[in-house]
Design a protein around this nucleic acid. Structure first.
Lengths: 184, 184
DNA sequence: TGTTTCATGTAAGACGTTACATGATTGG
DNA sequence: CCAATCATGTAACGTCTTACATGAAACA
């Protein structure tokens, strides 16, 4: 009962306009791809559950069994409650940092390679986000895009920091730190 | 079959010294708490599975049914394979950025408060990590602590960046961006 | 003798992923 | 008429969390 963020992502998207499960899927693959990916399976399942508890409702049926969902008053209230009364949790698990803890299992050369790769990957991710910032989709006015720019700025700063850190770590290692622990 | 990082966390810890499930739990609660938390339930279950596939083995039985586990040759090989032949994935979901996408549901005042809180929280997390850096546990020599310092530096840079970003976003908002969208 | 610490295990449920399955409609 | 797109749904499986359950040994 702690997370449920997929649910709130759906409510948030429906606050803008009504949409079908199919429409919502596309939004997850485009605007929300970098902050909260979701699969088709999840979207349809959660929409049914949301309708069951009255946070959304089907307002129209289209061709091919299409159902248009809209936010109910209860749904909007729940969205605002989530935004104001609950606090975001930062992610606790890092695949990257876990590896860093066990890096003494490798040779200095391999450790260097590890951080060089991280620096490179962060740099290319950063470049990708810079391209996204200049893309036309982000520069037309609109609610989601205004907020999206704030999120994008986070990504730019994060990837910049990651590159600097990896460079720093590589330098530490090439200066013989930590005392070349070697294998067992 | 993609992740399995809990498995590798256990292998990594057992590369240092043999340990019981109980010992490993304590290590998860201390050294790995900030990079890969795990519950008692998970640890015991995964240890049995690791023994089943021969990556670890029980080398001694102690009082109270205690089992000491050690890494096998296959286990060490798997640990090194994971470190060198697989690439870390960065986390894709952010509870924080998801909220940012829907912030237009709030008033400017509430949005300001949101970012002020984020700045504050990042600052206090940063301070906590600085305290950890000066703590005696981090300053005795040892394999895990040398690597831990690299991970800690990441945390310090991350929290610093988060505070700067939140301050920046608050400033954007107080300058009337994005054009005070208001409620529906 | 009683409490704390050590020590291991199982079960139920939420969430997420991948794959399977089905079919209508549109457009060339 | 055929292919792509639109559109929804189910099933199996893996991981993680919370809670339940049990008991031996140490120590005061």
């Amino acid at each position: 009962m702690s997370g449920m963020s997929l649910r709130h992502a759906l409510l948030g998207l429906l606050a803008n306009r009504t949409a079908s499960g199919y429409d919502l899927m596309k939004l997850f693959d485009t605007s929300l791809a970098n902050v909260w990916p979701a699969t088709q399976s999840q979207v349809y399942g959660e929409l049914t559950r949301l309708a069951d508890v009255g946070l959304v409702e089907v307002t129209a049926q289209g061709p091919r069994g299409r159902k248009d969902y809209a936010l109910t008053d209860a749904g909007l209230a729940e969205l605002r409650r989530w935004l104001t009364e609950t606090r975001p949790e930062q992610p606790r698990r890092s695949d990257l940092l876990l590896r860093v803890f066990f890096l003494d299992q490798l040779t200095s050369e391999q450790r260097l390679e590890f951080f060089r790769y991280q620096a490179e990957r962060a740099a290319s991710h950063h470049a990708e986000l810079r391209r996204l910032r200049e893309s036309p989709a982000l520069n037309e006015p609109g609610r989601l895009t205004a907020n999206g720019r704030l999120a994008l700025e986070y990504g730019l700063r994060l990837t910049a920091m990651q590159e600097e850190w990896a460079d720093w770590a590589a330098k530490q290692i090439s200066q013989g730190f930590p005392e070349s622990a070697g294998q067992s």
